[in-house]
């Protein structure tokens, strides 16, 4: 084999590999474009179907048997109240668990079990949490199909997300900060409460927002606890005009939430209800997009601003 043959052969091999390289690049761009197109189709489809229904009455009307009269008042009020319970339950518990695992936990068997547990819980399908809530909250503890039951169910569901986010945020705080606090005579808790937690607050916040955005859209566990789908009344207001001004009656009230209302409308055969479903879906998607967007923005700012 002479020299130029050899060279041509090498050139052919290089050209061959470069072709594959180009193909892979094109495949990647196409795959990404398909994801983008899907998003556009999903969003566009909902806008076309649902936009005409999105007016002030839609937000201030109860669900109704007449599709053009129906609205999402009880659904968004329900979602707000359920999220309130979820946040109040999941945030302190999740942050406390994260702080313990990252700052206090000794390296032993019990800690390892807790860590494996948190990882596994994150992989449990959400409907299983619904079954847990049905057996534990609704029947064993007798909380019924109430706002409290639903809020606690979703709190359990997002607990692993909050724990993991807290741990990651705390882990990124350099040891020198803690050593500085100890050197001034601070106790462990003083160090955690006055230094570690404030500095990791933005990171923890990101995790909490992502968790709540997930909880807002969860449908299956709420259906499983047997939440009613036709609610044409509001729970009693938490704020009263008489002493003691705050009432907790709403916790035990039946409720509906946005995704349940949407599911209910999807299951109706009439097309007019499906337009309502599209409108409700649009509101729901915009809510989750805003929350996730805020979380992404917070993380971006965090990455940019903090240089230890």
């Amino acid at each position: 084999m002479n020299h130029s043959d050899n060279l041509n052969e090498i050139r052919a091999i290089i050209a061959h590999h470069k072709r594959w390289d180009l193909l892979a690049l094109i495949a990647g761009i196409i795959a990404l474009m398909i994801a983008v197109l899907t998003f556009i189709a999903l969003f566009g489809n909902m806008i076309i179907d649902g936009m005409p229904r999105l007016n002030w009455e839609f937000f201030t009307s109860f669900p109704s048997r007449k599709p053009e009269m129906a609205g999402i008042l009880s659904a968004w009020v329900g979602t707000t109240l359920v999220m309130l319970v979820t946040a109040v339950a999941a945030v302190p518990l999740g942050v406390a668990a994260g702080v313990y695992l990252e700052e206090y936990a000794p390296k032993n068997f019990i800690t390892e079990i807790i860590e494996i547990n948190v990882t596994n819980l994150a992989g449990v399908p959400s409907i299983i949490y619904g079954l847990l809530a049905l057996g534990l909250f609704v029947y064993e503890l007798g909380l019924g199909q109430s706002i409290l039951s639903a809020g606690l169910t979703l709190a359990l569901l997002i607990l692993p997300i909050v724990i993991v986010a807290t741990r990651e945020a705390i882990r990124s705080i350099p040891v020198s900060i803690r050593e500085g606090a100890y050197a001034l005579g601070a106790t462990k808790w003083q160090t955690v409460a006055d230094h570690v937690l404030p500095y990791s607050a933005a990171g923890i916040m990101t995790g909490i927002i992502i968790g709540l955005a997930r909880a807002i859209g969860e449908t299956a566990p709420i259906i499983t606890i047997g939440a009613l789908t036709f609610i044409a009344f509001l729970p009693p207001s938490p704020l009263q005009d008489q002493f003691p001004f705050i009432s907790f009656e709403w916790l035990m009230e039946p409720f509906t939430v946005m995704p349940i209302q949407m599911f209910n409308w999807i299951s109706r055969p009439q097309e007019a209800f499906q337009h309502n479903a599209a409108a409700a879906g649009l509101v729901l998607v915009i809510m989750t997009l805003l929350m996730n967007g805020l979380a992404i923005y917070l993380r971006y700012r965090l990455r940019k601003n903090i240089k230890w």
């Binding site: 998003f39 999903l42 997930r214 449908t219 599911f263 999807i266 599209a278 992404i296």
Partner: peptide, 24 residues
Amino acid sequence: IAKPFLELLGGIPTVVYGYFALLF
């Protein structure tokens, strides 16, 4: 740009994807 976009896509509620599957 793509990473946060995919993240947003993953955050859309499943009931909305169900609507998309059935009616689109």
